[in-house]
Design a protein around this nucleic acid. Sequence first.
DNA 1: CACGATAGACAACCTGGTTAACCATATGGA
DNA 2: TCCATATGGTTAACCAGGTTGTCTATCGTG
Lengths: 156, 156
Amino acid sequence: MSSDVPGFELPLRLLLAFRTLIDELHAELSKQGHPDIRPMHGFVMQAIGPGGTTAVELGRTLGVSKQAAGKTIDTLERIGYVERTTDPGDTRRKIVRLTPYGLDALNRSARIFDTLRTRWATELGEDRLRALESDLRKVTPANPWRLDMPGWFGSL
Amino acid sequence: MSSDVPGFELPLRLLLAFRTLIDELHAELSKQGHPDIRPMHGFVMQAIGPGGTTAVELGRTLGVSKQAAGKTIDTLERIGYVERTTDPGDTRRKIVRLTPYGLDALNRSARIFDTLRTRWATELGEDRLRALESDLRKVTPANPWRLDMPGWFGSL
DNA sequence: CACGATAGACAACCTGGTTAACCATATGGA
DNA sequence: TCCATATGGTTAACCAGGTTGTCTATCGTG
């Protein structure tokens, strides 16, 4: 049957695995000149992308309200990771762009994640890791950016 | 190499997979008479266990402050999932115990998780799922209850 | 050109964290 | 035995990151 694993273990392990990666990422980022970055900031910056975005658009991408997106942008702006510039073609819009510092954090994050992935590949075997990735893709939504976590990234 | 997967995908998929399970759990719990339960409550109740605990102890188990644990207990008490009784042997301590309603939620959660696991086993194949579980165990801490997520279960 | 739709900001509120301070009770050593 | 210290719990003030509702400014179209 299916219950030799007490129901709670699988979800817990998934969460823990995520946490493990994120914790190590931030320990490393901290060493590499980004001590103030918070776990979700990396995801938000990834969602902003190199081309920039707006608060409304970011909210849609992340599945949170435009106000929540605006607050997050405020924070990111305050600590120097993004900047707001007004769109010359539409003065209502404010384009949010990564600063060089923000871009640096994003690039370092990607490299660190690659390193961590390599470590997992060593621990599990490349084949097993690929299988794991493939299986995770099968059981999760196609568009990974539609996080829809008002409260995951947040309350819970 | 390792970068045919853009670094961010693995952590994201782990989080999404967790989310997927939790969302379906709560959709189902809601149908089964537990509409007010929040995602973390199940984990907290699991951490409380059938024998009961105290605020300080629960805080230690979950890796949050005793005050935070106390607040969570307040909430759980308010919605009827736990009750506080004073310890006759030490009048400072207040034993937190699951109510029958709380126990019911916990039991149903376990059953629903089992059902979801079975669905994954169908989608992925039992062998693949076992491999996934085994691999997750390899890359996560031994004690899954030491969540240490002040801010995961929480801010981020 | 007026009106509806859109972008952004602001306010009030909620949840689940944090520290700090405090009170009551246990407990162990002089 | 008594007092100092440690421990359990509560309260208060704060923070981050969500929510909804309201408001203003601007865009774009009939």
